[in-house]
Design a protein around this nucleic acid. Structure first.
Lengths: 152, 152
DNA sequence: TTACATGCAAACCCTTTGCAATCGT
DNA sequence: ACGATTGCAAAGGGTTTGCATGTAA
């Protein structure tokens, strides 16, 4: 990932401006969450992010991670997903383009996709049901039909 | 609801056959959950169903409601929805046709809709990502633009 | 200096589990 | 009678909260 560093720097600048604008403080913990969230290649939940950071000798608590992720979501630097009734998953959002997810019923691997028809459906349903639709969550669940899935 | 009684009777027959087939026992508690789930006009969560039933002098525990709802989902007589990170919502499924949901950001009212393009998207993405898609969850979130919404 | 942020542990909420008592079959 | 089902309360897992301590501004 040659340009990931730049992305992280960019994210930190945006975050700094956001903190300033809202009178929040710039703490080392908050910036470290950006570093480590943006270091992930996959969606990650709070507990795994916490363990990951502990493992890297960071001194941070779960509470602070929760708090910081909320801030990151608020300023658009992170996206939160709730795929099932378990823990929420987060991913970086600076280079994010909206996509939806396909979750394998057996191995629970997550694949991403995007379909332009979703926008059309949103517009149409929004008009029909008199709602200004602000976001959506779409998850497909299915059985992999390829060998890379661990269900065979 | 003139024919709701018939629907409940029909549901009970299906449930009875399901219980028999699987060697499960026919208990008054299990049937009472059908009665009261099917009496709802809206989605309901376990706790509210429990309180509703307690209020009607039923003698039933939360654990049994959880257990029975699982069975009802298993045999197709109920559908379970997970709209947010809070409690799951259930609805009767005998007269159910698949639909998706629009949740108001402010008043949290739920509206239903259905769009045939979803099937097309499912088929296409399933082929593309090599998955036998078995189900999906689609929720739109938006701000009502009508006065019936409590957000004005 | 003085709030706000942190870290810890306890509290919370929804759901699941363990087990003795009950009840279908 | 046997074993599944119930009800209760305790345990579980993820998230939030309260409060003393630490720290940015």
């Amino acid at each position: 990932m040659p340009q990931r560093k730049n992305i992280i720097e960019q994210a930190k600048e945006i975050f700094g401006a956001f903190l300033l604008k809202n009178g929040y403080r710039k703490t080392a913990e908050r910036y470290s969450v950006i570093d480590e969230l943006y270091a992930q290649d996959e969606h990650i939940d709070v507990d795994n992010l916490y363990l990951w950071m502990k493992n890297k000798e960071y001194s941070i608590s779960r509470a602070t991670i929760y708090n910081t992720l909320d801030l990151l979501v608020e300023c658009g630097l992170a996206v939160k997903h709730q795929f099932n009734d378990r823990s929420a998953l987060y991913e970086q959002a600076l280079t994010y383009r909206h996509h939806d997810h396909l979750v394998c019923n057996i191995c629970h691997k997550i694949k991403e996709f995007s379909d332009p028809r979703m926008e059309e459906i949103k517009n149409m349903i929004g008009t029909e049901l008199k709602s200004q639709i602000t976001s959506h969550s779409l998850v497909f669940y299915g059985d992999c039909t390829i060998d890379s899935c661990e269900n065979k």
